[in-house]
Design a binder for these strands. Structure first.
Length: 207
DNA sequence: GAATAGATTGTCT
DNA sequence: GACAATCTATTCT
């Protein structure tokens, strides 16, 4: 079976021209593909969070904060925003909105599809373990995503999104975002999207 | 499965 | 110098 057949068609550029909340929802079920020198890996997105600066106080771009770190959030939709978490992990985000709007969708969990052995080596876990990709820092390690992907175009041959299978009827869940308590009332907004019942979803959601 | 403590480093104030 | 959109191991139920 060809790779294209296995993964589905590549998502078209206009897929990213959605409001950041709609994009957060639409990304659940899509497939992220990374072809690196180490090998090819692909995984289905099962959990996301939308961040909507400048008004969203949970976003790094809150208040329009534009620094070396947040610059990619202000770029065109369909680019990558990478940032470092607590020193040791990377987080992967899909930029949304028009140039100048600091919007992004954080990918919090994925379900491994291709390259389980490589992911297992990178994560030092068993190939069948949910620990492979059930968190934002874990999935970037498993997929080989790092700082060098900052600002990357998601239509490249190395890193792109392919059409996957959306959650079945009634299986798309929403909840508050994780670990953004510092954001006051914004922390309570149901801007986290996930596939109900999927074992790779990270922190157990409270719907 | 759930709760907890400790690790760890680039970025910004 | 403080903080952070977390991870890991450990210690319970």
């Amino acid at each position: 079976m060809s790779l294209a057949r296995l993964l589905g068609a590549r998502l078209p550029p206009d897929f990213f021209a959605l409001d950041v909340l709609a994009l957060g929802r639409a990304l659940v079920g899509q497939v992220l593909v990374h072809a690196s020198a180490e090998g090819l890996v692909a995984a289905r997105i099962v959990e996301t969070e939308a961040y909507r600066g400048p008004e969203d106080l949970a976003a790094h771009s809150a208040g329009g904060r534009r620094t070396r770190r947040t610059e990619a959030m202000f770029g065109p939709a369909g680019r990558v925003y990478m940032f470092r978490l607590y020193g040791t992990s990377w987080a992967f985000n899909v930029v949304a909105g028009a140039v100048g709007e600091p919007l992004a969708v954080l990918v919090r969990a994925v379900e491994p599809l291709v390259g389980l052995e490589l992911m297992a080596v990178r994560r030092r876990r068993e190939p069948g373990s949910r620990e492979l990709t059930n968190g934002p820092g874990k999935l970037t390690a498993a997929l080989g995503l790092e700082g060098r992907h900052y600002g990357a175009d998601l239509r490249s041959d190395e890193l792109f999104l392919a059409e996957g299978a959306p959650p079945g009827r009634g299986r798309l869940g929403r909840s508050a975002r994780v670990n953004v308590d510092y954001a006051g009332a914004w922390a309570a907004r149901p801007w986290r999207f996930f596939e109900r019942g999927n074992r790779y979803v990270s922190v157990r959601p409270r719907e």
